[in-house]
């Protein structure tokens, strides 16, 4: 990332666990304003959802590497029925294909309301920062 801009939010409804040994690096990087994915050190296979061992080459060493915060919209749903008290409806859950990665390398985001969306449209990452400093990478329509 060339520049980091955080979007400060008053309270994030559900904060992610940041202590998991396989996934903590993702959220640690987010606190720095970086979007990272985990890759096999030996064969460069992306390992997402993050884990250490590589299914492709059998390697057991992996590392976090920054990736451009760009993607394309894979699927979305407009949630209109209030289920979880932390999330006011309507809101839209977006699933984004991360650019430059194999099919299936996807991250999820949430947009307020019911924005007009088009399958395959460009998306860009946004770093939502909660009051306690936890940062959650989120996605919004972008160029």
């Amino acid at each position: 990332m060339t520049s980091v801009a955080f979007t400060d939010i008053v309270a994030h409804p559900l904060l992610p666990a940041e202590h998991d040994r396989d996934t903590a690096g993702f959220f640690a990087a987010a606190r720095r304003g970086e979007l990272v994915l985990r890759f096999c050190t030996a064969c460069d296979q992306v390992l997402h959802l993050p884990r250490q061992a590589c299914f492709a080459c059998g390697g057991n060493e992996s590392e976090w590497r920054p990736v451009p915060g760009r993607g394309h919209l894979y699927a979305w749903t407009v949630v209109t029925h209030q289920v979880h008290p932390a999330f006011a409806v309507p809101y839209t859950v977006v699933v984004v294909d991360v650019d430059g990665q194999p099919d299936g390398t996807r991250l999820v985001g949430r947009l307020a309301g019911e924005p007009v969306l088009t399958a395959g449209q460009p998306m860009r990452v946004r770093f939502d920062r909660a009051e306690d400093g936890t940062v959650v990478p989120n996605w919004e329509p972008g160029d």
């Binding site: 409804p13 559900l14 992610p16 666990a17 998991d20 809101y91 949430r110």
Partner: peptide
């Protein structure tokens, strides 16, 4: 998810979904 608790960890990977309201 419990609204008061952090979500995810323990191999379930909920931390990549629940914070975005993908909960059902």
């Amino acid at each position: 998810p419990d609204p008061a608790a952090r979500v995810g960890g323990q191999g379930g990977y909920e931390e990549f979904f629940a914070p975005y309201g993908l909960v059902t």
